[in-house]
Design a protein around this nucleic acid. Structure first.
Lengths: 231, 231
DNA sequence: ACCACATAATTGGTCAGATGACTTTACTGC
DNA sequence: GCAGTAAAGTCATCTGACCAATTATGTGGT
């Protein structure tokens, strides 16, 4: 077996195992070269192979990143999806509900301590500045909190799909409602306690409770969006 | 423009111009390197590109040859995901579990009477010839049954993802286990009653029951595949 | 707080060379 | 003439090195 091929296989293996997730930046070529004990040319050859297969994407001067699983499979038709269509929005909300539950469930089972710590940090960050935080920042932190959980599930499909739904669709839906939702006090209160519950369950690695909490949270969010949708 | 890209273009140009014909042997890498005034690495990069596009074919120790034009047309579609990877299989199985439940749940709520009838027909079809049906036919009917439910959920994402997982992944996983599973009597019995339960719940439009039944069924299937995977 | 600039980190591209493996060809001995 | 062998030609793979292009980051001044 080639060294380049072997390296490709190892990298792919780590991606499939959920060690390197979609969006993650791989170690630099120099780092990989040291890690695997090969020349940089060989590393480049390897990365080139994976790029041509759509697994990776290199950005000059920045790094090499893991692609989303569904980037190639799903995107062309998804791009043309009418996000303003209420049926589509409903579908996304329903899917999100399932995904959040599943992500939380498996995160409890498979997240590393470091990952749990990262989730907890993000949670603390959300708490710290309750009122001062600008709406957009608040929203971003919220999103990151959920994405971290999805990543910690170590299920490549769950992570990829969550990423896809969040980055491409959920933002759009939120944006369409122009922030009115995020400022409502009921949001802060209810969502706050829901996040607390999710966080608690995750820290205790209580998978079933985490799943339930995440589903409830998603259901609540969906409910609020539906109301806005009707009004 | 790259030197490698430029060389690729020049070589392709000569082929298109009829200078180098299908079957012809190209000048050796050392020769090309001298001809075009580039390093051998660059020549190899160039040839590698053209090979990946099916234009050329290299034969170790002999030379590099021009392919027939139509060779590339019949090239096998590249398989994105290594479905033989156990992590991927686990991820798919987990996702399937969730999807089946969700599909059944929403099918109860949103399927038209005609769609329900179609599902029922397919179910009856599975029942009719219990022993006589060839394994492959049986498997196809089973797949169609689940796909119809996914479609009846009227959730575009659920339907699309189900289709994707089934067509691209689940078949492969099943095929890899070479049918041993489908012939086991325990499969027939247990799966039979599970299908019955799903069908029943769907006909009654009992969403929660249908979801539970579908999840149990998927869990059962996943469990059996996991056993096979370990053995 | 904001902006411009320098610096570091990273990928892109190229080169020259070394070794190994395989194929073809030519030669040698019979 | 033939079989076996040696030699040459060729591709495969890997290494180490160099510089350019791009991006990220920190620094300092305003």
């Amino acid at each position: 077996m080639n060294k380049a091929l072997e390296l490709s296989a190892q990298i792919e293996q780590r991606i499939l195992a959920g060690e390197w997730l979609p969006g993650d930046r791989l170690p630099s070529q120099v780092h990989l070269m040291a890690d695997f004990g090969v020349a940089r040319t060989t590393v480049r050859e390897s990365l080139s192979q994976l790029q041509s297969r759509g697994v990776l994407r290199s950005q000059h001067g920045s790094g090499t990143y893991v692609n989303n699983l569904f980037e190639s499979v799903f995107l062309p038709p998804l791009n043309q999806l009418p996000l303003h269509d209420s049926h589509t929005q409903l579908a996304v909300l329903e899917m999100r509900q399932v995904l959040e539950g599943e992500a939380a469930y498996h995160a409890c089972q498979r997240a590393s301590d470091v990952e749990l710590q990262g989730i907890s940090d993000e949670y603390q960050c959300m708490l710290q500045r309750p009122g001062k935080m600008p709406v957009i920042e608040r929203s971003k932190a919220d999103l990151k909190f959920h994405m971290l959980i999805a990543q910690a599930s170590h299920n490549l499909i769950v992570a990829s799909l969550s990423q896809l739904l969040y980055s491409k669709m959920f933002n759009t839906i939120f944006a369409a409602r122009s922030g009115g939702l995020l400022e409502q006090p009921t949001y802060s209160e209810a969502v706050h306690s829901q996040h607390l519950r999710i966080h608690e369950a995750l820290m205790n690695r209580d998978a079933l409770e985490a799943k339930q909490a995440a589903e409830d949270h998603a259901r609540h969010t969906a409910q609020m969006l539906r109301q806005q949708l009707q009004s």
